[in-house]
Design a protein around this nucleic acid. Structure first.
Lengths: 185, 185
DNA sequence: GCGCCGGTCTTGTCAGTGACAAGATATGCG
DNA sequence: CGCATATCTTGTCACTGACAAGACCGGCGC
């Protein structure tokens, strides 16, 4: 085992995402993560400062991934329903990130890198709402909040085990179509 | 100060709800709650066994309150939109309970009292969905999941600070009407 | 009135944790 | 080769959750 781990920061983030997904942010211990990575208990401190720093980095990574996922779907013409499904897919694929992202008490919301990533995600989502076909009827802001609430709530309920289904993406598509029946694809 | 507190269980639950709402479940410490209540650090153990026991009781109380809130709205003829608004109002009035309820990793999901309260809440919500006027069009299950997702997601986003508004209940009503335009009131 | 029994709370203890200080080691650059 | 810096370790402290053992209190039967 070399003295320098080589890629400790990335390793710790990945382990943290797994641990949060599995047992919740409260149950994650820096020492446990350090043990899994094969380093001493104080090594994570160097990279993240403290626990909030690690979760801040995790949230920032999550917002970046979300922005990528949603943007890719928008560019491939999935429509607002497709973007909603992509949002749900992101949450289910990255439950650890998702969990932390929407609990600001866990991290430093004023972090620069995090704010940038969050803004990028917000732009990606907003682009999908304003560009939808039937955008004439009703307030775009209200429709956007409704769309976000719908997919966010669905993802949260599935992750919490409150809603059970074999095919979450299909069900996500079905409920999104209830809200946006006019969406093209 | 009498040796017996008199109402320690209730006092601890209330303090826990406040503390969770303020700083998240992770930041709540049994010792801090005990200090606030003016008892020793091991007193809570007697009533709840451990931290998971306390959060289990808090979640059960929350499901009971939710069932009461939603049922009252249904009986007063608020329709499915009114029930959705009541759901949001419950979440914003009891953020500590709401936070814990949908993080099963924090408590013992197989607890008897909790299961009963959760079933009561589920029945109250289901009664509203199946009784709505335009129940003919589409799958009732899908519509129910959509309704639940919408209001749950909206409440979660407002609590997380991701959506900001002066009048959450009015906005909740607006987005619920997008999903259920035919709802009577 | 009295004893005692169960429920309530306290004190004391242990391992695990987050945070930090001080120092050791490796890496890259001149 | 020599050194500055990034990276990691060891050691320490206060705090927490969990538990064991015992003290205290209220109400019950007698």
């Amino acid at each position: 085992m070399p003295y320098h781990h080589g890629d400790l920061r990335r390793t710790l983030l990945a382990a943290a995402a797994d641990a949060v997904a599995e047992s919740g942010a409260a149950a994650v211990s820096l020492r446990e993560l350090a043990r899994r990575a094969g380093v001493s208990n104080a090594a994570p401190t160097h990279h993240f400062g403290d626990k909030a720093g690690l979760l801040t980095a995790l949230a920032a990574e999550g917002y970046g991934l979300l922005a990528d996922t949603v943007t890719r779907e928008r560019l491939s013409g999935g429509g607002i329903v497709g973007m909603g499904v992509a949002y749900v897919r992101f949450a289910l694929d990255h439950p650890g990130h998702f969990e932390v992202m929407f609990h600001p008490a866990l991290y430093r919301a004023d972090d620069e890198e995090l704010s940038a990533a969050r803004a990028r995600a917000a732009d990606a989502l907003a682009a999908g709402v304003t560009a939808r076909p039937g955008a004439g009827g009703g307030d775009a802001g209200t429709a956007g909040v409704a769309a976000w609430s719908l997919v966010h709530g669905y993802a949260t309920l599935v992750l919490a085990g409150a809603v059970r289904t074999d095919d979450p993406q299909a069900q996500a598509r079905a409920i999104a179509r209830l809200l946006f029946p006019d969406d093209a694809p």
